[in-house]
Amino acid sequence: MEQQKLPNVTLILVLGIASIILCWCYGILGLILSIIGLVLALNTTKLYNANPNDYTNYSALKTAKLVTIIGLVLNILFLLFMIWFIMWIGWDVIMSQDQELIQERMNELLNQ
């Protein structure tokens, strides 16, 4: 039987790279993309493990999985930072968009 490439490897890599780029969107959009990429990577790994002699690009799959995991970690860290920031500054201050009050809270944060 002729060896073929594993399916979805390019898609997993694109999702991983996009999740790293989009982690600055409050961590949510990138988190969703990295979870989808990780699920696809785990399913493709199962497919490879069932028939390892049928596929050729397992190293590309490992790279794509690593990029997706890095994106997942970055998005979780940024999401936790945003939650901490909102808790510290206060949702009411952020929603009021009062620049002086936000500046005052930021100065309190930096001076402590």
Results as ranks from 00 to 15, higher is better:
E2A: 13
Q3A: 14
Q4K: 13
Q4L: 11
Q4G: 10
K5W: 05
K5P: 00
K5C: 04
L6C: 09
L6F: 09
P7H: 05
P7A: 00
P7V: 00
N8W: 12
V9G: 04
V9D: 01
T10F: 14
I12Q: 09
L15Y: 07
G16K: 12
I17K: 07
I17Y: 02
A18V: 07
A18D: 12
A18E: 03
I21M: 07
C23F: 13
W24Y: 14
Y26N: 11
Y26T: 15
G27A: 07
G27P: 14
G27N: 10
I28R: 12
L29D: 07
L29F: 15
G30L: 10
G30D: 13
L31R: 08
L31F: 15
I32A: 12
I32H: 10
I32N: 07
I32L: 12
I32E: 10
L33R: 13
L33V: 10
I35V: 15
I36Y: 08
G37S: 07
L38R: 04
L40W: 11
A41D: 05
A41Y: 10
L42Y: 14
L42G: 05
T44D: 08
T45M: 11
K46Y: 02
L47Y: 03
Y48C: 06
A50T: 14
P52C: 11
N53W: 09
Y55D: 06
T56P: 09
N57V: 06
S59R: 10
K62A: 01
T63R: 15
A64T: 04
K65G: 03
K65C: 05
K65L: 13
V67Y: 08
T68P: 10
T68G: 03
I69T: 11
I70W: 02
I70E: 00
G71T: 07
L72R: 13
L72C: 15
V73I: 15
V73F: 08
N75T: 12
I76P: 06
I76K: 09
L79Y: 14
L79D: 04
L79Q: 10
L79I: 14
L80H: 04
L80F: 11
M82Y: 06
W84C: 05
F85Y: 11
F85T: 07
I86E: 05
M87P: 00
I89K: 01
I89M: 05
G90Y: 02
G90N: 02
W91Q: 07
D92Q: 04
V93C: 01
M95Q: 09
M95P: 00
S96L: 00
Q97P: 00
Q97Y: 00
D98Y: 02
Q99K: 08
Q103M: 05
E104A: 01
N107M: 02
N107P: 00
E108F: 01
E108Q: 09
L110N: 05
L110V: 00
L110A: 09
N111L: 02
Q112A: 00
